[in-house]
Design a protein around this nucleic acid. Structure first.
Lengths: 191, 191
DNA sequence: ATATTTCATTGACATAGGTCAATAAAAATA
DNA sequence: TATTTTTATTGACCTATGTCAATGAAATAT
């Protein structure tokens, strides 16, 4: 697993040599079946997963309903980073929507790395900056675009996702009802 | 200005001694009148302001309309950090809604600091983590709460803001029309 | 101080999206 | 493969919120 992990991590983080090896060595493999949870709301945890193969969703539970916040696929990290940083129980759920292989690291190992290796601190900053940008853009799209525009942009930018994800979850992610997404799709299909 | 700035920065960033002084020394004062812009969409820039006194809004222009993303007050930073990090022209506008005194630093000075001072990198990480958390929570509230709930939580958490900001801008921030916010307020007042 | 402009409120009405129910299609399971 | 469960589509209807217009209040400028 470590070789595959190393190869994939190198692609997305500016790490090499000693720092990379030290980082990689802390990961442990974890395989989950479709519909199994990696993290559940209210659970204490500090784990961060890296997806080697598979697909997952992050969602909030509210009034018995699921509100999808995000999808994650190969070579992406999954965690409730907010709750880890604040040292509080998970605020959200992370569940597999396909059989999934993960490499899992504990946040305390990352904190240790921050102490040991000066490059780690910089990588931590760059990751956090990336997360900030991603979430700001997400908020921007909710502020400026309606559901149809969000759907069209998503299917332009990430057509695979549309295929890979059930439509009722995609609807939740776009913040409309499944019926509404179905009507949006029909409207687009007709032109 | 530097003394006042130093006092305020100390409150919000884990900086002291040399690192603090070095950081503070790079700021330049700037005073803007109500309705003047600090940053305009499409403009090239790399400045970050720290509000000493006053109030500002960040907003996007789309189809001639203003979409308010955020308000900022004393002891808060304002910038289009996204465009700075990506080295692209500003994506948004930042304008004073009161006469405002700023201390302004250029991002290149911060980059320099990252090289010189190991603590700076950590502060940069912590700031970015804070930004990530803030924007993720903002997105979460749009996903889980309606405009009335968002208004109520905001006025509980930040009653001063409600007083200080014109209602039509607050409406835009909550992503409803001014008429709708007016009706939300009436509904709440009646119970 | 007065005039002018901007902002907040309210009503009437239109419309997008939500809800509920039925059916069809697809996927999972036996 | 057959059966059952889950998901997608469609129609009818309802409710939220947007739009437009009028009025009054507040802020700003002269």
């Amino acid at each position: 697993m470590q070789e595959e992990l190393s190869r994939n991590i190198k692609k997305i983080l500016p790490l090499s040599g000693n720092a990379l090896e030290l980082f990689i060595s802390k990961f442990k493999p974890l395989s989950l079946k479709k519909s199994e949870h990696f993290i559940r709301q209210n659970q204490i945890h500090s784990k961060i997963g890296f997806i080697l193969k598979g697909a997952m969703i992050c969602y909030y539970l509210k009034d018995g309903g699921e509100f999808v916040e995000d999808f994650s696929f190969e070579s992406e990290f999954v965690s409730d980073y907010f709750s880890i940083l604040n040292n509080i129980p998970a605020q959200k759920n992370i569940r597999c929507i396909e059989d999934t292989d993960l490499a899992v690291i504990d946040y305390k190992d990352i904190l240790e790395l921050y102490g040991k290796n000066s490059i780690a601190e910089r990588v931590g900053r760059i990751i956090a900056e990336g997360l900030f940008m991603r979430w700001q853009q997400k908020h921007k799209s909710f502020l400026l675009e309606d559901a149809m525009m969000r759907y069209q942009k998503l299917s332009d930018k990430n057509p695979e996702l549309i295929q890979r994800v059930p439509q009722y979850l995609l609807a939740s992610y776009l913040h409309v009802q499944p019926e509404t997404l179905s009507r949006i799709r029909r409207k687009i299909a007709l032109g």
